[in-house]
Structure formats: structure tokens, C-alpha cells
Simulated assay, not measured.
Amino acid sequence: MNIIFVSNNMAKAKTLSTLQVCLIALLLISLPVVIMLFLIVPQESTTQQGDKSLIPSKLKQAFGINNPQKHLDAYALQLGELQARIMRLDAQSERLAKLAGEKKPASEKITPVSPELGANASKADPAGRGGPLVLNAPITELDLQQKITETMAKIDFDTDYLSDIEAKLLQQGVLKDMLPNSSPINAAFNSSSYGWRIDPFNGNKAFHEGLDFSATEGTPIYAAAGGIVTTAERTPDYGNIVKVDHGSGLETRYAHASKLMVKVGDRVEKGQVVALVGSTGRSTGAHLHYEIRLNGNALDPRKYLKASN
């Protein structure tokens, strides 16, 4: 099919091909549809478009923007650490109660109030609270983070204080003559190595139950007190380790040694060489990992080294 146009000015006929006619018809049909879609479909605001152009979606996911699950995971890790610290604090308070000859009282539990109690609810709930509402505001994420940090600092302070009390009770009690209060090596220790730290292998927070003494390989390791050798072996974590039992539940551990100088069943005297410094087991370099334990629970060795000075 051909369409012929005749111009008055030129008096000359122009012919359109079938393809050109189809294209014109298609354009005329699609134009109203495009206009309708533009009017019906909601458009994003310039602010949102600017956000998208400035912060790509992959970058948002990497930094956790608009991703509440990452925030929940971070708080879950912090709460888990708080629970671990509180459990250690509870165990330490129980040990103190035993040393002081007192029984630790059971924690009081508040019974939840049921709706059926009605007017008697205030009598059944010992934790009644109230008061006028002043300056009401929702708690923010920053507030929550600050409270968690303050709680951790308070727990650390209480733990250190209880460690001091525990050490003083042991030094004044019947175990004072058995305490390992001499240095196990002629080297300085890392004063922050006992307690919570960043694990050198996985980068997570972990509790370090002893002191690390940096020294060259082959440096002598001495028994901090007299006792019986109960362990002299190689393990995956401690490497070559010696454990000495000093009686009444007291034990010292000397780990990561390059060579063991005693065997199980040996009686050792205070100051006797029991091993040589090395870097066996889970270790990043030559050093002595030294622990003091009472009935299996780790004590802070710094408190007993200070007592010997």
C-alpha cells in the first residue's frame, strides 16, 4: 500500500512506503500508552534518587545500612559476652563465699503477675513502680550501646575488685603456705594478658586465663611453688605443658614449652626448673603461658606475683 501526498507549492507527489506507514501507526498507538504510564506510576522523589546515586545498594549492604539484622547480630554478640562475664562473676563470688565460710544466698525471683489477680496485683508484685511521666522519649540505638558499654565497664571493675579480695583471703587463710607466689621465669609479663582480650588467631573477644611472659626459646621455667607433677605432655592448645598440684585444689600450669624437664609423679621444689620456653601449641611466638587455678577455676596470677614483692 502506498499513500500519495500532493503539495500545492511544489505540485509534486510524495510516496510513503509500507514500512514507513507502519512505523507512524505504531508511534501513534504507543504515544497515549506512554503518557498514561507516566501519569499512573508513582515517581521517586529527588531525595531518594540522590540517595541511590550516592550510595550504591551493594555498599549499603556492606555497611549494614537499612539492614536491621546486622544490628541485631552485633547486639547478640555483646549480650553473649555480657552473659559470659556475669557467669564468671557469679562463679568468683561463690568461691569467695566458700573462703569466707558463708553460703551464697539464692537470687530472688519475681513471680509474674497474672491478669486474674486484679486488685491484689500490687500485693503479689514486690517490684511495683510508678510516678508521673516526665520528658518521655524512646530509647535510641546510641543509648543502648552506651548502656552496654557502661555495664561491661562495671563488670570489669567488680571482677578486678573481687580478684583482690580473693587473693587477700587466700594469703591470710590456711592455703597461704601453699600459694605459688614466686615468678616462674626471669622475664617481664604482659600486664593486660589476663582477662578479656582480642584473640590473636580469630580476632574475636576471648578470655585469657593466664599471663604471657615473652622470652627467648630455651629460657628456664621454674616451679612457682613446691608440689607434685600431675601432667607433662603435649596438647593441641597448650603445646608442651606441665601441671603441678600444690595441694588443697591449687594448681599451676606452664605451657607452650619447647622441652619438658619433669615427668608425671615427680615432686618438685619451689624454684626448680620444670621446662624450657618455646612456641608449641596455639602460640604466635616464643613465650611462657602461666596459669594458677583453684579447684579448676583460673585465678589472676598478677595478684600473687605482687604479693611476693
Rank of each mutant, 00 (worst) to 15 (best):
I86P: 14
I165W: 14
K154L: 14
L82N: 02
L99R: 01
L79S: 11
T159A: 12
K154A: 15
G131W: 10
Q146M: 07
L162K: 10
S163I: 08
K103Q: 12
S57C: 12
A97R: 03
K109W: 13
V134P: 02
S57K: 04
E141F: 15
K103V: 07
I110R: 11
E102F: 00
D158Q: 15
H71E: 13
E81C: 02
I165Y: 03
Q61N: 10
E94I: 13
E108T: 09
S122G: 12
A119P: 08
E150K: 06
K147N: 09
G130Q: 02
A124R: 03
S114N: 07
F157V: 12
K60I: 07
L89E: 04
T111M: 03
D158K: 15
A137P: 05
A76F: 14
A97K: 01
L144W: 09
A97G: 01
K70M: 01
R129E: 13
T159Q: 08
D143H: 00
G101H: 08
F157Y: 07
K147I: 06
E150P: 06
I139K: 14
D158N: 15
L72I: 05
K104N: 11
S57W: 07
K98W: 13
Q61M: 12
A91C: 02
T140V: 13
Q61S: 13
H71L: 14
I148G: 01
T159M: 08
A121F: 03
P132H: 10
K70Q: 06
E108D: 09
Q83T: 04
P68S: 00
T151R: 08
E108P: 09
E150T: 06
D164H: 15
S163E: 09
